[in-house]
Simulated assay, not measured.
Amino acid sequence: MKKISLLLLAFATQMVFAQANRFVYQVTMKIDSTDKATSKTEIANLDISAGNSIFYGENRMKRDSIMSRMRQTGSFNFNRDQMQALRSNIDYTISKDYKTGKKLYTSRIQRDQYAYEEDRPMDWKILPETAKIGEYKTQKAETNFAGRTWFAWFTTEIPIQDGPYKFSGLPGLIVKVEDDKGDYSFDLKESKKIDAIANMEQRGSVITVKRAAFEKQQEQFRKDPTAGLTSGGRGGMRIQMDPTQRKQMEDRQKEEMKKNNNPIELK
């Protein structure tokens, strides 16, 4: 009976997502653990086709679009205030392959693009509590992932086992998910048909590593934010800096990191 139910769900999913769909989430983040009264809000998209999905920040897509146009035209004049306004805490993409179950996390550390396959299972406990969220009837579920306890509300009215960020595996789309401390939340705000899922531009080669190696590289960057610029990273480009410039950049980036001390994944 369980196999039949899964087959029916898979068939319904193919019917619903015969064309691409975009689910728009509002992401609320408290990135500074010393200032829980302040939160940042961004919009992120979950684009879904019949066999895969991609989750990404809207600001990231807008920045990439601007940079792509500048490279095509050869004109690198841009509005610094506009680009600053498009800075994002969702500066990563997460691709999911429905056939294999693989989740690929891709992010930039300085000038290098890294990707790793998520290797931790997401085990859900479905709870009896239900709620009406927007137009959807939802049911609550709980999981522990990456050092946080998460509560999700999913709807079987959209028969797809996916959701924002790395969340997936429930018998319906995740409409809302938040951690028990109220530091992070993802809330579905809109859904619409699209011609095709987003094709996020990746400049240069992507370095595929294990998750532990990515986290080690990220930690090294936090300790010395300018190392990749002055050494050239794996791309080989080296930026010459005098000691004063290096110190100013290092101080600025370390100050930003000091306020960005409450990551979505704690371990």
Rank of each mutant, 00 (worst) to 15 (best):
T13R: 15
Q82C: 01
K102N: 15
G74C: 08
K36F: 11
K176C: 00
K166P: 02
E215Q: 14
K96S: 14
L104D: 12
G232A: 10
E135K: 15
G57D: 00
G74A: 02
Q248K: 13
M249Y: 15
M257E: 05
L229F: 14
K210P: 02
I66R: 02
D224N: 15
M122S: 05
E215D: 13
T28H: 10
I48S: 07
S39K: 04
N261C: 09
K2R: 08
R222N: 07
I4F: 12
E42L: 07
T156G: 07
K254Q: 10
F167R: 04
V27Y: 13
E58Q: 13
F167P: 01
T149M: 09
M241L: 15
Q72K: 10
S88R: 06
E42D: 08
E215K: 14
Q84P: 00
S65Y: 07
Q72N: 09
D187T: 13
S88T: 15
N59D: 09
G134W: 07
Q220R: 12
G235T: 11
G236T: 10
D242A: 09
Y105S: 04
T106H: 01
I194K: 04
E201Y: 04
D119T: 13
L188V: 02
R69E: 15
D195V: 11
R211T: 14
L6F: 06
Q220Y: 04
T106F: 03
L104V: 13
